[in-house]
Design a protein around this nucleic acid. Structure first.
Lengths: 343, 343
DNA sequence: TTGTAAGCGTTATCAT
DNA sequence: ATGATAACGCTTACAA
């Protein structure tokens, strides 16, 4: 059996409660006994038992992570590694631990969350996605369990602390950039329309067109998976239009890579025949031939802020609801050119 | 306060211990009371408190994950996402949870592990790397704490359960393949020489040369980070040799991408002037221009097996030490050609 | 087959 | 400033 607080107490000739106070560095303990107790702890190589502490204090110092249920897709996207990196740093800096839940189906995920929450495994939760009509978000809200979402909640935006980019503006800027190059037949290839990030970017795209008096052509708007395959299928569909677009706004680099692959196979030249702007600025964007102009959304920071804000919320019972916007930047590379039909 | 076992007991008119037994599905409880208790649980929407259970049973059903300390590098490599995916499925299938520890420095990581172990936070640990003279591995071994490593332990190979590829054979096969194309000036670009995976692959490479009576030229062997930058620097160094190699064995796709970038910039043609075989077969290998011939090591399975074997080890006190080898396959693409100096 | 009661290792509330 | 002692919610001998 491991060394417990009692062993330390015995060695230091104090009560267990005193040892506990020393651990918490209570000001009501004399410096004298503090050092005596600390010496005993060192001598015995004492390490507090987190489980016992959690039970007594009703707090685990663990943050739960909820991945989207179709995590197979999610794992393949570099977005995953990058948020995790930010999250990991964020919790670590605050002396919390990170625990993951996946789940093949939505029900599966839901059960995982309930276990974490009702099982008292975690003090707070971070949702790594935001979609419409999400049962998990509904559950957490109803239970008033502390959580923050990465992305924009579909409902109750002003009731739920979240960390997001201004995806509307980002898409608008990207589209404006394309329009500035003379394009007016601009396609939109987005992820699942049940994700709020897709909706925001779609709206930004539409607004940019509207502001420039370009008709919105619903045939130019396609949704797919945040995967290469998603991009491949989408661009094929767009090329079947009677008048195919001369530029594409693609909401994810991995999809954009699929788009590039397909266009290259069809011997359609980028950027002379088709221009592309994508999102996320993963390594893929840089590696692509040609390198992709992409919007950097600072994924790591998204994770870091989510973690630190959740923890702050945990410490401060009545922390106000917050909306943290992480800045984005358009990184111009070589996937855009002036419109071929402009003279 | 949440619903506890006592509330259920009261409603079902049984003792708390009976409820506990029903949860554990003990055979010594009559079907009759079982259903009565279960009805009560449903009615109250009871969920067992994991923390309390952990404290009482001295087992948390949580697996700890230890990333390499320079996790910044690690996170960027697609290896990370893929193992995590496998691990995640593995623990999930066995009703365990996954908890992560990172740490900027080695000391940092070490402290994290000690906290997990002595703090009773986890039942077992998975090391996501294997390097020589690793304090953490030494600590876990000394403490006889259950753990498995992904990769091959440097010491005590037959005392530590691990999941690995046969990296020696994989490298040998890859090198043989290159030799078969007529190359005999073959460079080796590897990751850190303190990682056992690097050593194994290096040995396989050397053995292949030896078997074909090709001199081993230490000038052809370079080590770098498992990153694009690592590959870039390494290949530049190799090209400065008086007689530069005509083929390269690169132990990681991401490094290989760096190699390809650099060669392309220098207008050296792949595969006509330089052939390349890389490892891991990440999406990068396929995306590269030209697409890379790469050894698929089945990363996801590495993770899945690590998780399930650790859990089995936890269940079966005296499970034998195991060495699980995940098969690899050489995926031939377009980065290799016959040696330019062969007629 | 079921109940009683003693832990598990802390924290926290009273006393002193 | 410190010590007893009762939680925290569960598991598990030991009884019955």
């Amino acid at each position: 059996m491991a060394i417990t607080i009692k062993d330390v107490a015995k060695l230091a000739k104090v009560a267990p409660s005193t040892v506990s106070r020393v651990i918490a560095n209570s000001p009501r303990i004399s410096e004298d006994t503090k050092t005596r107790v600390r010496d005993a702890m060192d001598e015995l190589k004492y390490h507090p038992n987190f489980i016992a502490r959690s039970l007594a204090s009703q707090s685990t110092k663990v943050i739960g992570l909820v991945l989207p249920h179709s995590s197979g897709v999610f794992f393949q996207n570099p977005f995953f590694s990058e948020v995790i990196q930010g999250l990991s740093e964020g919790v670590h800096d605050n002396h919390y631990a990170l625990q993951m839940t996946s789940g093949k189906t939505e029900f599966d995920s839901y059960e995982g969350v309930v276990q974490m929450v009702q099982g008292g495994r975690v003090d707070g939760i971070i949702l790594l996605y935001s979609m419409i009509d999400d049962k998990i978000m509904e559950y957490l809200t109803k239970r008033k369990f502390p959580f923050v979402v990465i992305g924009k909640p579909y409902d109750l935006v002003d009731k739920i602390t979240h960390v997001d980019n201004d995806n509307y503006m980002a898409a608008k800027e990207a589209t404006d950039y394309i329009i500035g190059l003379g394009h007016h037949k601009i396609g939109f290839i987005g992820g699942s329309p049940s994700l709020t990030v897709t909706l925001d970017r779609l709206n930004g795209y539409k607004e940019a067109l509207r502001a420039s008096d370009i008709d919105i052509n619903e045939d130019y708007i396609i949704h797919g998976d945040f995967l290469r395959e998603g991009g491949q299928e989408a661009v094929k569909a767009l090329l079947r239009r009677t008048i195919p677009p001369t530029a594409l706004l693609v909401t994810d680099d991995l999809m954009a890579v699929g788009v590039v692959n397909t266009l290259t196979e069809m011997q359609i030249e980028i950027p002379t025949e088709v221009s592309i702007v994508s999102f996320n600025n993963a390594l893929f964007a840089e590696m692509s031939r040609p390198p992709l102009t992409s919007i950097d959304i600072n994924i790591k920071e998204l994770g870091y802020q989510a973690a630190s804000n959740l923890i702050q919320l945990l410490k401060n019972e009545n922390d106000p609801v917050k909306r943290i916007i992480i800045p984005h930047t358009l990184v111009i590379r070589q996937s855009c050119d002036v419109a071929p039909d402009v003279e």
